[in-house]
Amino acid sequence: MADNEALTPRVFIVRHGETEWAKAGRQTGKTDLDLTPLGVKQVQTTASVFVGTAKLLDPAKLAHIFVSPRKRAQQTLQGLLGGELAGAGVEVTTTEDVAEWDYGDYEGMVVSEIRARRRKNGLDDEGRVWNVWRDGCEGGETKEEATERLDKVVSAIRDIQRPSMKGGRPADVLVVAHGVILRGFVMRWLGYPLEMPLNMMLAPGAVGILSYKNNNIEEPAFNVGMAIPIMD
């Protein structure tokens, strides 16, 4: 990679591993679920390939970790860094600001059930179907509320990384959270409204990478593809 790219701080986003509800397509907000055995293996595989000294996500280069308080995210963080977490001396912030979207009355439902309920309640019709980014959730979170908390995290990360835009003290940041809220985080990182149509996917246990163009804190970007570090 180019020298300036190597110096620019990055933000790694990691979705927690599989849960039983995620496997079934059920909306999982505040419900506190453990990872499935497959979910544990997903995280372990991610860690073995991408996490470690001189690997893509090097604990020695981490300045801060933001993690959801839900068990599935906490278990994922431990699976990623394990014993390295204590020795790295990285500050860890457990915060509701990166918890999954609050689905309210839709908790535990699948999308088809939500859309049928909303039609029955007169909220949607055949020409307009539920979209969490636009419509939020009955009894749960609105797009404005989700935007407000995500913007707090984006601002905090910019404050951490601003002094290190051209090298110096390592300032990578790790965010361990959930599928929907992490996609929302990407939107707000780029300055886009949550409802802007931009289809994204993030598999259980997957790693995404955000950073900045031109070593410039005012040019947030995402990496469409990241080169694997070359071992000396």
Score class of each variant (00 low, 15 high):
Gln42Glu: 11
Glu107Cys: 01
Ala156Leu: 02
Ala54Met: 02
Leu35Glu: 00
Arg10Lys: 15
Val154Met: 09
Glu219His: 10
Met231Asp: 09
Asp172His: 10
Pro69Trp: 02
Arg118Glu: 10
Arg188Ala: 14
Asn215His: 05
Ile157Lys: 07
Trp189Ser: 09
Lys143Arg: 14
Gly52Gln: 04
Val14Tyr: 00
Ala206Tyr: 03
Ala203Pro: 01
Ile181Pro: 03
Glu91Val: 12
Arg169Trp: 11
Ser48Lys: 11
Arg118Leu: 15
Glu144Leu: 14
Arg128Thr: 14
Val11Cys: 10
Lys152Glu: 10
Gln161Glu: 12
Ile228Leu: 14
Lys213Pro: 06
Ile181Met: 03
Gly17Lys: 08
Pro197Phe: 04
Pro220Gly: 13
Gly127Ala: 07
Met200Trp: 03
Leu210His: 11
Ile230Glu: 08
Arg15Phe: 02
Asp151Phe: 02
Ala47Phe: 01
Leu56Asp: 11
Ala99Asn: 14
Val43Phe: 02
Asp34Cys: 06
Ala177Ser: 15
Glu195Val: 08
Glu5Val: 12
Gly25Pro: 02
Leu182Ser: 15
Leu202Met: 13
Leu210Gln: 06
Arg188Phe: 07
Val129Gly: 11
Ala99Ile: 05
Val224Asn: 11
Asp32Thr: 09
Glu20His: 02
Leu81Asn: 04
Met201Thr: 14
Thr46Met: 05
Leu174Gln: 10
Phe66Tyr: 15
Val98Gly: 08
Pro59Val: 12
Pro163Leu: 11
Thr28Val: 10
Phe185Leu: 15
Asp125Ala: 01
Ser164Leu: 12
Gln78Lys: 06
Met187Ile: 10
Gly191Arg: 05
Pro170Ser: 10
Val153Gln: 08
Val176Trp: 00
Asn216Met: 11
Val90Gly: 00
Ala156Lys: 13
Leu56Val: 12
Asp97Ile: 06
Gly29Val: 12
Thr94Ala: 04
Ala86Thr: 05
Arg115Asn: 06
Val67Met: 01
Arg26Gln: 08
Glu18Cys: 01
Thr147Ala: 15
Ala6Trp: 02
Asp135Gln: 09
Asn223Val: 13
Ala206Asp: 12
Pro163Ala: 11
Gly83Thr: 13
